[in-house]
Design a protein around this nucleic acid. Structure first.
Length: 308
DNA sequence: CAGGTC
DNA sequence: CCTGG
């Protein structure tokens, strides 16, 4: 059966799929290229999406339900937060920071994804002291073992991200340990149990309503979630766009280009964490987390040789 | 040592 | 501390 191609009007300057989907925000997108045909395949909102980009629109297919273009456009628009005019913001951040201006000329259209809260919590528990390729494999395993099958496509089976109750099952820790999750197996299972115990869906809904500092503290009551991971979740799932997660990479960039007085350490201390965050919030303002994500993408090695 | 946390 | 490059 042939799947319909839908169309979402969106200028290339407003959204760059490469930097946005491959920048380490989500671990569920794969890029494929066959005979010059470039596509992104990924999962969000319990659907499988195939995306193609042209100069003025996103062409896409959806698997997982039968619905209207208007309905799907709204899901995409929400996921990419297209209500925010990025050209305007880039101009503003560029005027405040020449380093940003230089990075922005090459890395336009990088957006913060509005990601599902549960998926983000467990994906970023996997991220600590880990590398992107292993994190990706772990997230895929979580979906395969505990999610629901959505569809098969080009020899691949796609699954939704699991519900919390399925991750709270007593057997989960030993299964994940056997699957190579290491010490994160326990964090995942325990965090799921805590969320269920504290009210499940209600705990999650409350989290979305709280101001930044309180939602961060609440997230840190889970296991495997410290300041950095909590900030990732605040930035990417709770809409706190001023939040700047400080990992070793961001710390290196900050020390190299912005704050040469910072001491050289192998781990980011609480004071360094706060100083860097404050510096960038002072520089960029209320959407500092978004601006920092653009800088971070620009510095990733994999983009340095890519003409896109 | 890898996008930290206990 | 788990595990993989």
């Amino acid at each position: 059966m042939k799947q319909t191609w839908f169309k979402l009007i969106c200028q290339k300057e407003q959204l760059q799929l490469l930097g946005t989907l491959n920048g380490g925000q989500s671990f569920r997108w794969k890029f494929t290229e066959a005979e010059g045909d470039k596509k992104w395949i990924g999962v969000f909102s319990d659907h499988v999406w195939v995306l193609k980009q042209t100069d003025d629109c996103i062409l896409y297919q959806v698997y997982g339900s039968e619905n209207s273009e208007d309905f799907y456009n709204k899901l995409l628009s929400n996921y990419f937060q297209l209500n925010l005019d990025l050209k305007e913001k880039f101009a503003e951040w560029s005027s405040k920071d020449p380093i940003f201006e230089k990075a922005a000329s090459q890395f336009y259209g990088i957006r913060i994804l509005k990601q599902d809260l549960v998926e983000n919590i467990f994906s970023f528990i996997c991220s600590s002291n880990n590398n992107i390729s292993r994190i990706t494999g772990m997230v895929e395993k979580l979906a395969k073992f505990y999610g629901e099958k959505i569809c098969e496509l080009e020899d691949q089976t796609y699954y939704s991200f699991p519900k919390i109750d399925s991750l709270a099952d007593d057997k989960v820790e030993s299964v994940l340990k056997k699957e190579g999750f290491g010490y994160r197996a326990k964090y995942i299972n325990q965090s799921a149990k805590i969320i269920m115990q504290e009210g499940g869906e209600k705990w999650l809904d409350d989290l979305k309503k709280l101001p930044y500092e309180e939602s961060k503290s609440k997230l840190m009551t889970l296991t495997g979630i410290g300041p950095k991971v909590a900030d990732c979740i605040c930035l990417m799932s709770l809409g706190h766009l001023g939040t700047i997660p400080i990992d070793t990479h961001v710390y290196q960039i900050a020390r190299k280009f912005y704050m040469p007085h910072l001491p050289k350490r192998k781990t980011v201390t609480a004071k360094i964490y706060k100083d860097i965050g404050d510096h960038f919030r002072e520089l960029y303002g209320p959407l500092a987390g978004w601006a920092h994500t653009v800088l971070f993408c620009a510095d990733l090695k994999k983009f340095q040789t890519d003409e896109n």
